[in-house]
Design a binder for these strands. Structure first.
Lengths: 192, 192
DNA sequence: CGCTCAAGTGTCACAAGTGTCATATTTATG
DNA sequence: CATAAATATGACACTTGTGACACTTGAGCG
């Protein structure tokens, strides 16, 4: 989602919708109006700079959009280390989870912008993890890259279930960083 | 994100609103200002750490929420429902996690006061979960009740690894509520 | 013990921001 | 197309920030 409604902002700031509209009318928060009745929309970057300007905390929902954190869910330590090395050298902050339980807790605690997910892990299906991420509002926005040595059909199913990208193992270092950088555009506020 | 106004805090601490504002201005209590006239808002977590730092009692409004939540980690839906029914009727708020991933994420998101943990789940060892809970600062305080059909030796090992109580399956309804109530004393505002 | 001082807190009135409510309209959903 | 959900608006009530001043508390000291 590129823009926010007044309701979105009201929820994130724990403030009444009426108040958000007043901020916009007063010019404190930059926004624009839809042609219809003048419903307000605010670009995420404008909202973020608004928050920074007033020393207001960044809501968790947006923290996930503007960060470079990647969570690696893979039960093979060697693979996880390898992925971590590649992504760290590309400037990402990484954490690894070796089992489903760690994965779930890190997902909520670490609030990554992207998750690399091994489809086949002992005891837990990668599809279930994917479904969980997509069906939970707090995590639905997180990008998911599925890594697997399984066949094309399995990868297609992952895409159908909401994966943003798939990579078949073994994969090229460059391919991994390409995919991650495509999914995490540097959408920072480049203005002074 | 839940926030508090100066008025909320004033009522909870039984002080004047003016005083709360001074705490914030002085930096003793972390907060931020709304863009309008600079009305103050304080995040609940910041307020709680402020209270702890000054050895002030936790208001009932905040304590009550944190005290009666139980997370049920069990892959057998029937067992989970059964436990939920028993604990709900005893006045607890429950959530169930059917696999390790859900368990980990609910642990962080739901922030339960107590976890019932099945030792034997497909793909993930209950001991690992226990170790994770105990070794993570944010969750180390959470009470853990291990439920298992395994032998006495397995239960003893769970106790050794930090479980607060163990129950061998099948267990008596009353036994479960007894254990939970022993671990979650009704810590209402007993302070003057 | 009484005094003084300093620091923190409560009180008051006013101005300004924010929440609530009902309602009309728009947008989303199926 | 029809229905449900979300949004804008105005009026009004409530809450909050501010400054000035009085009050309380605790410590230090003669």
């Amino acid at each position: 989602m590129k823009t926010l409604t007044t309701g979105d902002i009201a929820k994130m700031c724990d403030v009444n919708l009426r108040t958000v509209i007043r901020w916009i009318d007063r010019g404190a928060l930059k926004g624009f109006k839809l042609p219809g009745r003048g419903n307000n929309r605010v670009r995420v970057e404008d909202f973020v700079s608004f928050l920074q300007e007033h020393d207001m905390p960044l809501p968790a929902e947006l923290a996930g959009e503007n960060n470079r954190r990647v969570l690696i869910i893979d039960d093979e330590a060697a693979v996880a280390r390898s992925i971590a090395r590649i992504l760290r050298s590309a400037g990402y902050e990484t954490e690894a989870a070796m089992d489903g339980f760690q994965g779930g807790s890190m997902l909520v605690k670490f609030q990554p912008a992207l998750v690399t997910l091994d489809l086949r892990m002992p005891g837990i299906s990668g599809y279930d993890v994917l479904k969980f991420i997509r069906s939970t509002p707090e995590t639905a926005h997180i990008k998911v890259v599925v890594l697997s040595a399984l066949d094309q059909q399995a990868l297609q199913r992952a895409l159908d279930e909401g994966a943003d990208a798939v990579l078949s193992k073994p994969f090229d270092n460059q391919a991994l960083t390409d995919v991650v950088e495509r999914l995490l555009p540097v959408a920072t506020t480049e203005l002074a």
